[in-house]
């Protein structure tokens, strides 16, 4: 059960039950839809971008505990960051859950987001953790949609 408790940690279960910033954001100037066509998860990220800073961020959508908690914690982590800082977090998070970044050995800005490191042992669930991040990234870039469809072959269909 040690592996299981690593994935479903209390923090993740808590964010699943009470997702933060879980509402439509009035006054958002960027909106992006994220969709995982393989499992049907979908979410919308609302962003208020002002002078290169993410002033406010929220999401709504449906998905599993991993995807909901990842979205909730993503909004907390990215809110208040500059575009460049958000980009850095996006890449670090993605590298961590795909096993390319050793969050303990390599310098990074992930902080509390490290609890998602366990996802890399569940290839079928990597997309769940990264969907919100791809969607946020699309909003950052001004795109309206994001999909996990074009991820690598290692990131298996659940």
């Amino acid at each position: 059960m040690s592996e299981l408790s690593e994935l479903y940690q209390q923090v993740i279960l808590d964010h699943n039950k009470k997702p933060r910033n879980f509402q439509k954001l009035e006054g958002a100037n960027r909106t992006s839809e994220g969709f995982n066509p393989l499992c049907g998860d979908q979410l919308t990220v609302y962003m208020l971008m002002d002078e290169g800073v993410v002033r406010d961020l929220s999401f709504v959508g449906t998905g599993c505990a991993i995807s909901k908690a990842a979205a909730s914690m993503m909004t907390q982590a990215v809110k208040g960051k500059t575009r460049e800082e958000a980009q850095v977090l996006f890449h670090e998070f993605h590298r961590m859950v795909t096993g390319e970044l050793d969050e303990e050995a390599e310098e990074n800005h992930l902080g509390r987001l490290k609890i998602f490191a366990g996802v890399r042992d569940y290839p079928a669930r990597v997309k769940c953790a990264s969907l919100a991040w791809h969607t946020m990234h699309a909003a950052l870039e001004g795109a309206e949609t994001a999909t996990t469809e074009n991820l690598g072959p290692g990131e298996v269909n659940p």
Binding site: L4, L7, Y8, C39, G63, C64, A65, I66, Y122, A124, R125, C128, P158
Partner: peptide, 10 residues
């Protein structure tokens, strides 16, 4: 309201 993907992993 547990998502089936979480059920499958457990």
């Amino acid at each position: 309201d547990v998502h089936p993907h979480d059920v499958g992993t457990i």
